[in-house]
């Protein structure tokens, strides 16, 4: 349980810090916000290697959803560039 709490806190702090930094730098593209969030969430999940198998399976679905969103954002950006 303590590991889960630490993991959730890490993700929450990193995502909020990123938001503050990106607002401060004047970032105004939702795609970039989302891409950075997805990368950070995936990296933090990979760093917590000792999370048990059952939780890891659940987090694998979350990673798949986030990666799906990232792919859609990437495809939309490519279409916009090509058009």
């Amino acid at each position: 349980m303590k590991l889960y709490n630490r993991y959730i806190l890490t993700v929450a702090i990193i995502l909020l810090l990123t938001t503050v930094i990106m607002i401060a730098t004047g970032q105004n593209s939702l795609d970039i916000y989302f891409t950075v969030y997805v990368i950070e969430a995936l990296v933090i999940t990979e760093l917590y290697v000792y999370i048990n198998n059952k939780a890891r399976r659940g987090l694998a679905y979350v990673s798949a959803i986030l990666f799906g969103g990232f792919t859609i954002a990437l495809c939309l950006q490519i279409i916009r560039i090509l058009a």
Partner: peptide, 13 residues
């Protein structure tokens, strides 16, 4: 994103 993570972890408790 946090809500997805919490729901996934909730199933492992």
């Amino acid at each position: 994103i946090l809500s997805f993570i919490l729901i996934a972890l909730g199933k492992a408790i």
